[in-house]
């Protein structure tokens, strides 16, 4: 019997298509579908009730969600900017090092080698109000005799989380910007010095435009990271106290697993992903523009 035979390219790609479908496409479609249902893990049948945009409508009106959303954006903005500045400073210092630069580069990467969970535990310990290093140091230096409730006060806890985030990821910026600095031709800098630039002007008009694309690459990578920030927060405060450090993903996981409202959680997750995509697209645009500007050949 001679029936229809699928074309060879399709047949050859079929294994890959099957795997992709099983692990990516089907879960994606299923989760997207479930965000249009009142699906609860405790009531499997609820998966078959289609409610349209009700979950999304509820999220849009949900104060708690928007607070977490805003806090995530705030964390993203502050963390990226501080990391960028610190990373830039570090990179420029390391670039100036005449000896031991390889060693310094390696040391600079240490924070990246730790799991965010471990970083979370470490900072949770350091910021502990009773036995933490931070309070101990402050008290020993005589700066305060109070036990500052780092992880209990809302804004202090947010700061503590920021510090942990920044500590663990500044090196991403430092490494990428250092790569830019090392790749940069030295002559334009010398030309700028002869052209009358002060060191600051040299940086502002010559060095910075050149390393900007590298900074944007770091930004793009980190914006994905922070938008899915979960582990450090989960360990340090678990969104507490009283949801004052709740970020989108801690909220999503709480809604999904603690409250078992999977449909609603999936809707939230899709909004969060949208946020990630927006940030990434924004930095990609910036990156492309900066690349054209320095006429990069990559």
């Amino acid at each position: 019997m001679k029936g229809w035979r699928p074309p060879a390219p399709f047949l050859l790609l079929l294994p890959a298509i099957v795997v992709l479908a099983a692990v990516v496409i089907v879960p994606l479609i299923l989760s997207l579908y479930s965000s249009f249902t009142p699906f609860r893990l405790t009531q499997p049948a609820s998966l078959y009730t289609f409610v349209g945009f009700r979950n999304y409508a509820r999220i849009l009106a949900d104060r708690e969600f928007w607070t977490a959303f805003g806090r995530t954006v705030l964390l993203l903005t502050v963390a990226l900017n501080v990391e960028m500045l610190l990373g830039l400073g570090l990179a420029m210092l390391v670039e100036k090092a005449t000896s031991g630069q390889r060693l310094l580069r390696t040391i600079m990467m240490f924070p990246m080698m730790f799991s965010p969970i471990l970083v979370g535990f470490q900072f949770k310990f350091m910021f502990n109000d009773n036995i933490g290093l931070v309070n101990n140091a402050l008290q020993s230096l005589g700066l305060t005799d109070q036990a500052i409730p780092w992880l209990i006060d809302g804004s202090l806890a947010f700061t503590a989380i920021l510090v942990a985030e920044i500590w663990s990821s500044t090196s991403v910026f430092a490494i990428l910007i250092l790569a830019g600095l090392l790749a940069m031709p030295k002559e334009p800098i010398e030309a700028a010095r002869v052209d009358g630039c002060t060191p600051w002007q040299t940086f502002r008009y010559v060095t910075w435009p050149f390393i900007m694309p590298f900074a944007y690459i770091a930004m793009t990578i980190r914006s994905l990271d922070v938008a899915r920030a979960y582990d450090i927060v989960k360990i340090m405060t678990d969104g507490g106290p009283a949801k004052r450090t709740e970020l989108i993903w801690t909220l999503v996981s709480r809604t999904a697993y603690a409250d078992a409202r999977m449909g609603l959680a999936n809707a939230m997750a899709y909004v969060a992903i949208l946020l990630s995509i927006l940030f990434t697209v924004y930095f990609f645009r910036k990156l492309a523009a900066a690349r054209t500007q320095i006429a990069a050949e990559w």
């Binding site: 031709p185 010398e190 030309a191 009358g196 002060t198 008009y205 050149f210 006429a295």
Partner: peptide
């Protein structure tokens, strides 16, 4: 260098890659 009132032409030209010719010359 900036206080010596001299101009230098480099072997590799050392132009500022992100500036136009006009901006390079007027920098």
């Amino acid at each position: 260098p900036r206080s010596r009132n001299l101009a230098m032409v480099f072997q590799s030209y050392a132009l500022y890659p992100h500036m136009t010719v006009r901006e390079n010359m007027g920098f």
